[in-house]
Design a protein around this nucleic acid. Structure first.
Lengths: 251, 251
DNA sequence: CGCGGTATTGAGACGTATCAAAGGAAGTGG
DNA sequence: CCACTTCCTTTGATACGTCTCAATACCGCG
């Protein structure tokens, strides 16, 4: 149960063809017909506040969303309250596919910043598969990419040391954000308890680990979150091989 | 580099329509036309020995496989040799989708037992999407299910205690195997070092943890692997909510 | 017979969790 | 404007879980 109100507005505000995201070269260009269908696929937009719950575990009437702006994260919880953040959702990422495909959602999604979401009709997904093989392929591609990110997270939590894990997390978020075209120093909109719940560490130990990264000049904590000062050093420290830089679809 | 020879035989031995797997009620029934296409999609069969490397990280000419029989596992490694097992592949599971979709594979797959694999043409995947929306949907479904399993593994490694993790792993493998129709006591074909590399623990500590489960009568280690004696107790100890029992596609 | 793979056990070192407390910043209501 | 709360970061002390090192034992196999 979130304290913030969840939904705000639902009118279709931006045409897909003029979606600012689509201009970025992180995303592959779409055919006019694809664009047309995606536009008809789009039901509207949803604004959610920071800390609002976008999707909740156990629900099965979930919609499908694409993040237009803002950050969110997927997580699961154990009965006693222990929480594990599974991955983060950035602009262009698809949210809720598991719920649509498998019936019941087994994770929740919370907004890290105010988010603008593109809402898709659950029912029209079958139409997408029936009439737009390319887009269907793209949906699978996005699912597969999420799987790839999870693989790396699993490697991280399972086998990297606390410092390596932290460095990897911050580096990967930095890279993913930078790939969206941002310039200048990046401030990741996360708190230390998000880092802790992502890395599988306690908050106290997370703080001590981050403190060392900050003392080394790699990062800096500000009110808004974590400023990444030296992404290369983070990557080096994490032993991460980096992210393939490929044009990805935007649905 | 594996010591065993990798490939054996490649002739098409079993017609998809008469595939023994398809008879199990774990899998949803297929339309005749779907079956026909899947059959044409199938290029042949591949037998691999125990401990053979089925797919290797970094390769990009990968095929797509469905496990017909036997067990395997997906894993990633860090440069210094630390290994993390990401998930296990059982009959009916798809292997290599990431490689086909994303170009380069970022994980490896090794056989835990001798495996019989159904080999699919990488190039024909696009045809599948173009002409068989239902099957395309199924491929996405399988990718999404893998994501779901990874989510749970991530929760496990990140937030469960060693004993809970071990219990969860053994319970989930037991459930997945049982869902394929096996009867009687199950012997999971894994060694303790597999458990260790899956749970993100050292071999020594894994042994001590498993020893307690064995002393409590929940499991037993035999030459062939781990006999699950009390799956219910394992599930209870792990705090796991179980696996949704739904008819899944077999491609 | 020796050998490699596997399971087991003990001892000590190290990393991480837990408990406790403090301080800064932002927001709220008086 | 100030007291007050809440959220977040930080630090220290101690307990606990897990790792590493080391050694043993068992087994099937060449």
């Amino acid at each position: 149960m979130s304290t913030s109100s969840k939904a705000t507005g639902s009118g279709q505000k931006v045409e897909c063809a003029s979606c600012p995201l689509r201009k970025l070269d992180a995303f592959r260009p779409f055919e006019p017909q694809e664009l047309e269908f995606v536009s008809s696929f789009k039901r509207g937009e949803l604004m959610v506040d920071r800390a609002a719950t976008v999707l909740v575990e156990g629900s099965n009437s979930a919609h499908l969303y694409t993040v237009l702006s803002g950050w969110g994260f997927r997580y699961k919880m154990l009965d006693d309250g222990r929480r594990q953040i599974l991955n983060y959702a950035l602009p262009g990422d698809l949210i809720g596919l598991q719920g649509v495909l498998m019936g019941e959602l087994e994770h929740s999604v919370e907004a890290l910043t105010p988010m603008r979401l593109c809402v898709f009709e659950r029912n029209k997904l079958m139409t997408l598969y029936a009439n737009h093989a390319g887009l269907a392929y793209d949906v699978t591609w996005l699912a597969s990419r999420e799987e790839q990110l999870l693989d790396e997270n699993l490697l991280s939590i399972g086998r990297r040391s606390a410092a390596e894990r932290a460095a990897y997390l911050l580096a990967s978020l930095h890279v993913r954000w930078k790939a969206l075209g941002g310039s200048g120093t990046v401030t990741l909109p996360i708190r230390q308890h998000h880092v802790a719940d992502t890395l599988g560490l306690s908050l106290v130990h997370t703080n001590k680990t981050l403190r060392k990264l900050a003392s080394a000049g790699l990062i800096e904590w500000v009110e808004a979150g974590c400023r990444v000062l030296d992404a290369q050093a983070l990557i080096a420290k994490s032993g991460w091989n980096g992210l393939a830089r490929v044009g990805r679809p935007l649905i």
